[in-house]
Amino acid sequence: MNIVTNFLKVPYRAGAIVLSIGTLLVILIAAVITLPGFLAPENLSNLLAQSTVLVISALGQTFVILTGGLDVSVGSIISVTTTIMTLDLPEVVRVFLCIAVAVAFGLANGYGVARLNVHPIIMTLATMGIGQGLALIILPIPGGRVPDWLSASVAGSVGPVPNSLFWLIAASLAAAWLLYRRPFGLYLFASGGNDFNARMNGVPVERTVIKAYVLSALFACAAGMFLAGRLASGDPKGGATFGIESVTAAALGGVHLAGGIGSILGTVVGAAILGIVNNVMNLANVSAFLQSVVKGLLLLALVVSQRRKTIGL
């Protein structure tokens, strides 16, 4: 009984997750029926590798969106991470430098939004510019070498299971643990639901918001590591599209941009929808321009068909 009622109540705070899962299934079935190459092992592992950066960055983005904010600097942090991994420094130092840079960006975003009341888009637009510039200063053109262990951890496989799946699962579990197992998760939903009332109840709203931006940056850092390993080199513009795509993925997964509604499963499903649509259209030789139109329409269709309900008393 408890399990049933809990299951019925989860969708409320998770948003239109049933709709997202349904869409994913429809797209999957359509892809399997119409494209014979879709289920080929090499395509599946390719699809997985392509989607992993998106999933990891969208998971981080979910924390920020749950507060009612937005983090467009995610893409720049991914790019910076790939370039730092090519620096001529001891490998351990490169890793720590990546993490330090990500934390610095996250703290700056969070502090600006929570304490200085800068609008999230303006705040992260500014750090997006800074991050992009920094990446180009470190590595003006794509290239360089990343540590071999990083490439190996991305490219290899354990038996038939590609390593990228482990990255994906690890990131999802970490995000789920933070959101559902830590007090931070409850405070995140509370702050996004009604920040004034959350404060009245003793929820540390500012600290929660800052943590959300730091986590978003750290997940972007992990996504950047994966991308660097996959390219086996650095790319100062390699992450550029993920700032927006991570938001798209979350929105496709039923995360409300107004805050307070969303789920980890939803974001993973949303990112999967986007990844599979990309993959399918590539397989079917759809032009890149048309792909963009299709993705835009898909986003509109899914978001419009969600039951619009403004939360708030």
Partner: peptide
């Protein structure tokens, strides 16, 4: 004006 959080449960 209530100080409740709309997206949490009664118990939360």
């Amino acid at each position: 004006e209530f100080t409740l959080i709309p997206n949490l449960t009664v118990a939360e």
